[in-house]
Amino acid sequence: MVTVTVNVNGEPRTASVPPETTLLRLLREQFNLTGAKLGCDVGDCGACTVMVDGKSVNSCLMLAGQADGRDVLTIEGLATLERLHPLQEAFEQLGSLQCGFCGPGILMSAKALLDENPDPSEQDIRDALAGNLCRCTGYIKMIEAIQGVARADGARPAPKSA
């Protein structure tokens, strides 16, 4: 067993787990944070995306021990009690998610993108979502939502609609 302490959504949490435990299982099974999903378990689908030290990662491909002492942000850490994260609000308003299973991962990828690049082009957004599979939506409404949030941040005037 290894003892792992991670700073999850701003709160230090500790658990003792077998060394082969992935960060995903640590979050889901030890900390009851079931927002990150197990979709493929090999890094293809992105449903398990969380941010570690500010970078998005496949939590199914990281050992819990490798996250020891690091900052982990999950979907549960995006909203506060008072207010949704602007991305969550935009996704809700545009109906960007359908079955919703890919949603937490997509939102974390979008958040990681906007943190690094507040003014992404459509191509930047597509590139940022390349590691997140969605089988329902066709991505368009997600891309619109992310563009909308980027613009609302005052990054640039709205481009002419296509």
Partner: peptide, 20 residues
């Protein structure tokens, strides 16, 4: 625009699927 009543919980990561 079609929005969904379950859209908010989806976005919050609070929708519970079986594996949860």
């Amino acid at each position: 625009r079609a929005t969904r009543p379950d859209g908010r919980l989806h976005g919050l990561g609070q929708t519970k699927y079986i594996d949860d």
